[in-house]
């Protein structure tokens, strides 16, 4: 046993192939995050593929109690990402669905349970993959920003994502992290929740927005598009000048490719001048 290198289990020796699970919201609303993720993965020494057959992880159906549809979608994902070294998502929420809930869904179907567990084992949220598997260490870059960081609930509590994005971001020069109160509180997005119970959701996002404002930060960074769109939408409705970014864009240094979430090209131009 002495001949086996200690790191061989956690750090791949060959150049691994990573299947990017784009996620619905990135696919539809913010492709720039997908390209940022690709860039980061390639920089870290991975070959990136984007299986065409991927659609949705099934979380909306699962959370609505529609287990049959959720399982149908899960089977599709399991098939689409079979035989790829790793599956990486720019989302802790969809990552939690695959890693935690797929095995739950198939608890009574042994054949699929094995495949679900196998996929869960190979699946990582982007920042945890870079930090814990590829062990990239802090990622070099530059962004002049005082930023709050939002820990999305699924990522934080289902996958234990907290230190990884902060560690990666510590290499970004000019970036000052300002932790907020209520850091572990939900932003009120919750998928269908925010459209089914908009008043309660508004109250929750206001608590969050107040906490962000209290830090005096001019940026908000996070790892999940749903939460970020929710908070960006409320920040803008309340007229607060906080620019919202997905952590992948900041780490990849691709902020110039797209305006901050929910802002237009013109407002980005203004920001740059300012």
């Amino acid at each position: 046993m002495t001949g086996i290198a200690l790191h061989s289990h956690d750090m791949p020796e060959h150049r691994p192939t990573v299947g990017l699970f784009v996620t619905c919201l990135v696919d539809l609303m913010r492709p720039a995050v997908g390209f940022a993720a690709v860039k980061l993965l390639e920089q870290a020494g991975c070959d990136v593929v984007v299986p065409a057959a991927q659609t949705c992880c099934g979380q909306p159906a699962y959370n609505a109690g529609d287990v049959a549809d959720a399982k149908a979608l899960a089977r599709g994902v399991i098939d689409a990402f079979a035989r790829i070294d790793y599956v990486v998502l720019p989302s802790g929420s969809c990552g939690g669905t695959i890693k935690v809930h797929y095995p739950e869904m198939f608890a009574d179907e042994p054949a699929w349970l094995d495949r679900a567990r196998d996929l869960a084992r190979r699946t990582f949220e982007l920042t945890t993959f870079l930090s814990d598997v590829m062990k990239t260490g802090p990622i070099a870059g530059r962004l002049e920003a005082a930023t709050a960081y939002h820990d999305s609930c699924s990522g934080l509590r289902e996958l234990g994502i907290r230190e990884q994005p902060r560690a990666l971001l510590s290499g970004i020069q000019g970036l000052e992290l300002r932790e907020m109160d209520e850091a572990e509180a939900c932003c009120g997005f919750g998928g269908l929740f925010c459209v089914k119970y908009p008043e309660i959701s508004e109250k929750m996002v206001d608590v969050k927005v107040d906490a962000i404002a209290a830090t005096g930060a001019d940026h908000l960074i996070g790892g999940d598009m749903g939460c970020l769109m929710n908070m960006a939408g409320r920040l803008q409705r309340r007229g607060l000048d906080v620019h919202v970014r997905h952590v992948a864009e900041v780490l990849a240094g691709t902020c110039a490719d797209a305006p901050p979430i929910g802002e237009s090209e013109t407002s980005q131009a203004k920001t740059k001048i300012a």
Binding site: R30, C194, P198, M229, G233, R234, R237, G262
Partner: peptide, 9 residues
């Protein structure tokens, strides 16, 4: 439900 309280990009 969304745009009542937030902007949607």
């Amino acid at each position: 439900g969304w745009t009542g309280t937030r902007d949607l990009p």
